[in-house]
Amino acid sequence: MATQSFLLLAAFLGVLLALAYPVGVYLAKVGESTQIRGLGWLAKAENLLYRLAGISPESGMGWKSYAIALLVFNGIGTLFVYALQRLQAWLPGNPQGLPNISPDSAFNTAVSFVSNTNWQGYSGESTMSYLSQMLALTGQNFFSAATGIAVAYALIRGFSSRSSKSIGNFWVDITRSTLYVLLPLSVIFAVFLMGQGVIQNFSAYKDVNLIDPITYSQPKNGPDGQPLKDANGNPVLGTLTAKTQTLAMGPVASQEAIKLLGTNGGGFFNANSAHPFENPTPLSNFFQMLSIFLIPAGLCFTFGRMVGDMRQGWAVLGAMTAIFVVATAVVLIAEQQAHPVLQALGIDQAASALQSGGNMEGKETRFGISASALFAAVTTAASCGAVNAMHDSFMPLGGMVPLVLMQFGEVVFGGVGSGLYGMLIFAVLAVFIAGLMIGRTPEYLGKKIQSFDIKMASIAILVTPTLVLAGTAITLMVEPGRAGILNPGAHGFSEVLYAFSSAANNNGSAFAGLSANTPFYNMMLAIAMWFGRFAVIVPVLAIAGSLATKKRLEATAGTMPTHGPLFIALLVGVVVLVGVLNYVPALALGPIVEHLQLTK
């Protein structure tokens, strides 16, 4: 089984590399606003959009204008998503007649989808109309991903330009990212998913007859709605037989494609990519994992191409891959272990021709341990958050890895755009530390890294740990926070820590035992999501603006090379060290204690 797991990982990385390189080169052409052969018809649509919006695509923006445009665009998007949810009962595209969404849930969901988090306090099939799913949520899946790509382009231009005040034009970047990259890839991928069995329709939900009727017991309620009890105080049970089941329908494939390609992660259904209508086959599962990493990996090559040195892109990709492989190996090994409590009961948990073995609670049999553990590592290394297995049911160490990958700041491939700009901020910090050690003014790609750049990099890196640790602490101190916890003890602490790590780092997955669709959690997590996104983007754009104004110096014999194994090791070390220094005390209270309790 271990051999199968690592063969799957090797195949995944091999196919990813083969696909990411051409995508990265293509993304560079999109970012450099060059004509793309064969897509002249899209250029006409692009120019029409600029004319309608009154935008001059040739005019550049300083970093502050770029940031304000980005914030206003995303702010208006948030208000739009909120309004649509609050009005959905009176709008078309609602065959189930679903009611309007409560104000606190609509607020949380609006911030969630705009910030590329896609944290879902609600259950999609029982809450959202088709119109809300398509126009509000899928629309923001495109725009939030395009926003991330735009910021990555802006930062790359900061490195590549010479004595310029402009870092590009936000409106051009977001238009071209959507029109040339996200839309075409999503159409291709959605058609592939439909071929695998993902549904795409506007039907009302269907009641179907079960092949085998199911008989089950359920507590009876009295006229007052309270459970009936017998003379001994035990609940009175009634026997029921279910002969039919309601199957939720909807335009799933069109949302599924961008959910993954845009590292958004919000599922059409509550079960997300564990649902057979979202992710029906092992092949669809393999390509879902690939699509999560496709653009983040491709952007490493985009970076190399736009700064004129592909070795720089390979170095960033190498650092990301090194962390990812180690993290994935830990999840694979942890989940393949027999659960000690079940082992004590004599239950067979060995891998065989008939079963995956290991810890199968919360996992789909069609995926088994290998594809579930790899998906968990992929979705949390990238800031996607789609799940094909329930992370809350992972072994303590298996569940700790997704938690840590988020806490590294979502820079191990990371979100679309945000992974690259996050890792480049760590690269700036790495050359600064190296400069301190050898007593030279730090340089990265010929740009001097000065006081302002390091201050902004420090803010960008420290925003998310502050939100995570403060949010977790406040939540555990107040009753509405503690009320949402399902499991007592260490795992309950992990549920809250995971929620804030996921929200502030814009991942969106959960230890889903936590009951988080309450006014308290909806507000607290919205604050973490918004500022975890935009309080990082602003200092990143400030660095881009600062770097753009500087001359690009030629490398000399004393310049530290930033494309070799030494720099990759330094970059990995900085990412891991910052993550460890921030989070080890919290991890010790959660998954580490839980592991020790389980194995004592």
Partner: peptide
Amino acid sequence: MDIVYIGAIVAFIVLSCAFAAGC
């Protein structure tokens, strides 16, 4: 309650823009 949450969204936007302006 809508006014509270719409106000919160507007406050998020204003705070973020102020952060950018004061960087």
